[in-house]
Design a protein around this nucleic acid. Structure first.
Lengths: 218, 218
DNA sequence: TTTTATTTTAAACAGTGTTCATTTATTTTT
DNA sequence: AAAAATAAATGAACACTGTTTAAAATAAAA
């Protein structure tokens, strides 16, 4: 009886360590992939590149991830956690219209500070196939940040703003507006057209948006 | 003297035919590439795929185009001509605010009817490298459609709309709004979030946008 | 007809994602 | 401690990619 218990303990200790080591290796692959993905882009980063970076064999990576897309996807999820945590400060802003504006600013800041991660999350086409085939809670729960936007706009409507507007479509419009600005910037569609002010155009556009919101309030 | 003239004529006739045939072959490559690019995407279409489609050798394509990017770019330019020609009807709309709204509708329609071409023009990252290195008049002239938007908004301001707004940043904001909606749709970021109305959400969003414009007018 | 120029081709190069039999290392059982 | 079982890591192989290039085929000119 005593011996069985000891064996049981021993097994558990080892399997726990094993699992920990496996998790560490997974993390090592992920952080190498992140560096390379954000540096050279997803398409131009090969499994061999990632393997080289951590002095590993290409084949071994397939022990930790089903395919290249799964690596992409893991990073994708991390990005949403980052963005969500930035939004947390907004719970302290009681006025919904003020909250809406600050939300836009946080969103734009996140995109401008992490353009490659934003690209990964909202522009690239690769991840979405995976999202549909997997049980990605981040999306299945409905992209928490978007729901937060919706509830904020709902509150705005309740307080008398946006009279006559439909909440869902308006939320989509607001999301589209900020997404449009940052994605045109990230995918370099402003550089030729607005060359002389490409560094400020997104923030300037955002302020035009804010002043439109102010106008709608009064 | 007569002979020289005949020889001259003969040469010209042949070189003209040659040039015509070369142009035809170029066009054949281009239309095969267009079908495949829009069907499977640029990245997943190989030079060999294009060559197979027109019963040609992969290497020969490099006699007509420097590289894969140049094929992409040729199609890219064609897309702008399409969009611009759609915009021509707007010259018959005298009221600038009405023109602005119709412009948005044409832009969105074009994007929804030609999602892959739109993707090529405004979302994909591949072409921009080429735009900077080449003398792409389409962009060097400043993307005619955007200038048309700017002048329309300028007229709106002159007629008293958008008081207190800055023309350039506002134009960027308006462009971003329509681009944001169609690009979120094309890159399938609405499907999970707004599953039950994904077929109408872009048009609904556009109407919300119109009603905001109406509100700003009064 | 011979020379010259052009077009086309297939093979080759260095790279890709992914699979898999084999080797290596570790853990468990005897 | 030795043997068996399990797990992890590997490198070669497969079928693909974009691109280059020497050779072959074709057409034009002399």
């Amino acid at each position: 009886m005593f011996i069985y218990f000891w064996v049981f303990n021993k097994n558990m200790g080892i399997s726990e360590r094993k699992e920990r080591e496996k998790e560490e290796q997974r993390e090592r692959i992920l952080s190498a992939a992140k560096i390379l993905f954000l540096e050279k882009g997803v398409e131009k980063t090969s499994i061999r590149n990632i393997a080289d970076q951590i002095e590993y064999s290409p084949g071994s990576i397939y022990h930790y991830f089903k395919d290249k897309n799964e690596i992409f996807h893991a990073l994708h999820q991390g990005g949403f956690q980052q963005l969500m945590s930035r939004m947390e400060v907004l719970t302290a802003v009681p006025n919904p219209m003020e909250r809406l504006k600050r939300m836009g600013a946080i969103y734009v800041d996140f995109a401008l500070e992490n353009p490659d991660m934003y690209d990964l999350m909202f522009i690239k086409e690769a991840p979405m196939d995976h999202v549909f085939n997997s049980n990605d809670e981040q999306w299945k729960e409905g992209f928490g940040t978007f729901n937060f936007l919706r509830s904020t706009i709902q509150e705005c409507i309740q307080e008398g703003y946006f009279r006559g507007h439909e909440e869902e479509a308006l939320s989509f419009l607001v999301w589209s507006t900020v997404h449009g600005m940052v994605s045109l910037h990230i995918r370099r569609r402003c550089e030729v057209i607005l060359a002389q002010r490409q560094s400020t155009i997104v923030k300037d556009g955002l302020h035009e948006f804010f002043s439109i919101l102010d106008r709608l309030s009064s």
